[in-house]
Design a protein around this nucleic acid. Sequence first.
DNA 1: CGTTAATGATACCATTTGAGTATCATTTGT
DNA 2: ACAAATGATACTCAAATGGTATCATTAACG
Lengths: 152, 152
Amino acid sequence: MKLITRNTDYAMRALCHIAKQRKESVSAAEMVAALKIPRPFLRKILQTLSSEGLLRSTKGQGGGFALSRSPQKILLTDLIRIFQNTIQLNECVFKKKLCPNRNNCALKKEIDAIEQDVLKRLRGISIASLGNGHHPARSNQGKCHVHHSSVC
Amino acid sequence: MKLITRNTDYAMRALCHIAKQRKESVSAAEMVAALKIPRPFLRKILQTLSSEGLLRSTKGQGGGFALSRSPQKILLTDLIRIFQNTIQLNECVFKKKLCPNRNNCALKKEIDAIEQDVLKRLRGISIASLGNGHHPARSNQGKCHVHHSSVC
DNA sequence: CGTTAATGATACCATTTGAGTATCATTTGT
DNA sequence: ACAAATGATACTCAAATGGTATCATTAACG
């Protein structure tokens, strides 16, 4: 039972990496080198992020990817929705009709409640909140070396 | 992303059903009829619950299964542990060595925290708490019909 | 222009896990 | 002895995850 999959995790890293760079755009090649993610896989992920509107891409030489909105507005839940196609923890194993007792299922109610909590917390996690949103207030406090990504 | 799988859910229903009966033991056949779970599948689940010590079984004619401890002490987390072999939501996708930055991974920390919350809540759910633990205080408050399982 | 460095679009493959089936052996009450 | 039960085990099937491969398209630059 994993809360996030590799897709989601890689996407998070890539987005954080882009956020840290102050460039117009960051190429897949650069991210492969920096993040040690298999190239074809990362490319696929970046393409998905593009088509989903989280990244803008520019083709051709010198091209690459850039965030299409501010890091504060890119949430972990966005990525989960994209790569894990649902965010429901509950997904009653009895699809619709089958369960005779769907409305007063005690277990379902409990899990629904837990799900609400989890969602609330997940919605608080963004690219920015993971420490690379270059908030003026927090960024690189006087140290001159670039710090490593804090997304493991 | 499901919090519980069908195995776990079926096991929960079966255990609740047994808890509701006041018999010495309940046979698989009876539960198949009552819970509409495919027979071989339920049998496998019951066998697992037996071998894991949650049920005591008696073979031969008139045999069946009985809870091996009180409903209050059979937790949802027990079942998750048995049928989903881990309860970790985090399971950093980078197994051990691979992740260069495991100790100060911001994402991991966030998810760890969420996991602790979820666990705390899950540990509050037992066979008894799902409404079929025949607590003297709550059971069948004056009504003479047996109420349906509240596990959907 | 033509080359080269980039992304876009697709199609494919391998492994794992979840969900369920099938079969035979063993035990035990009548 | 027989029937009704569980024990043990091996197998199948489908979906999801994780990843690869290939060709097409675009655009800067010399």
